[in-house]
Design a binder for these strands. Sequence first.
DNA 1: TTAATAGTGTCTGTAAGACAATATATC
DNA 2: GATATATTGTCTTACAGACACTATTAA
Lengths: 227, 227
Amino acid sequence: MEFDTPIATVDVALFALLDGGLGLLLPRRDKPPYEGVRALPGGFVRVNEDDDTADTARRVARDKLGMDVSYLEQLYTFSGRARDPRGWSIAVAYLGLVPAAHLHGPVLHDLVPVDRLPPLPFDHAAIAAKAVRRLRDKSTYSSLPGFLLPGEFTLQELRTLYERITGEALDPANFRRQVVDAQRLVEATGRRRTGPAHRPAELYRLAAPGRLLLRDGPGPARPADDA
Amino acid sequence: MEFDTPIATVDVALFALLDGGLGLLLPRRDKPPYEGVRALPGGFVRVNEDDDTADTARRVARDKLGMDVSYLEQLYTFSGRARDPRGWSIAVAYLGLVPAAHLHGPVLHDLVPVDRLPPLPFDHAAIAAKAVRRLRDKSTYSSLPGFLLPGEFTLQELRTLYERITGEALDPANFRRQVVDAQRLVEATGRRRTGPAHRPAELYRLAAPGRLLLRDGPGPARPADDA
DNA sequence: TTAATAGTGTCTGTAAGACAATATATC
DNA sequence: GATATATTGTCTTACAGACACTATTAA
């Protein structure tokens, strides 16, 4: 019976900002199959070590990043006979976000712009596509992109980020009202970013982690999508 | 290594209408653990038989219902050391809908009103709660509830159903415009339901299966949430 | 003082919801 | 014709988006 159980793995789509655009972490695999090929970080579930698959995802991400992700949510579960050459497999996929400012050295070379993804092994192209779409969709009605920025940021930085992710321009005035006044997604820190030759901008941080809504999404306002 | 692989199961939350309200299928388990206790239908993934976990879900649903579900989507994946007494387990949960009119005899006795659920084994209470919430949420902006009705229905039947599921009253005039004119979720069959002592209602059917949006939900209009 | 961006005020179009009015079947 | 629901018309209001205007800093 043990013999007939599917392989259980976890794959993580980790995003960070790369030159202002969205980057996906695709390190080269250090083991077969597909050794040396760029792929989503992943690994087997370790039943003696992990409490659940979210735990596996955090472990995998920490191993690759050298730090904890600032946001993690379950994306979708991919399964089937053909997706992994090792046999019938179940891959629970997660979506994670990290502020690029917190990353160091070699990891940065594994960040690939999401609109220039190389061919990927397994069904990682489908997983990556679903992750990008989820992130884009949620960006239109939540403060999710905030997790890609460091702790403090100006509204311009946040707005530009939304624009880069969703691909549509936003009016600075209306953006401010939505994010600060109407939805209270971010709150002023009281400090300001000074330097350039013009009026300095107030610095903001993400408000209570539970607040994610920007526009009205589906159903009542809830924290993340997680169980 | 085989020894250390988690158990892989699929659980299905199957909904059908019960006295106009929402009913969840909870048959009694015919095997240990929890033999004789009401629980979500579920089963092991059969690697020789199922192409993927959606296939497993369809097989499990068909076994219990004696028919195919009219709608199925992946809900969430539950995992961990403690949720199943048999050991570390991964349960891919699915949400399914069936028109009650298509159900026969004994199955109907396993339908339980969702607001009167008994205590459930494993973490099935959490799965059921998430399924109900997903269905309620999607009902506010999609034609999902249509899959709970038979092939043809009046707008009143559909509207009443939305009201029962979401718990809020809807204006018949505005509902019609949304569903028929604006979103084209349903289309007239040309036939009418006659009988009661008043103007007969036109009969409608769900429009192209891909159309699911009612109000603007998150992101662009897409078919179901599935991969 | 100027340049450049931060931030505020105000208008307009769209669409959801409230509600009145009309249509059409059976009895 | 009476009745009850189907269906259409019209108005109001909330709100997102467009855009003009004012504020404030460094050079």
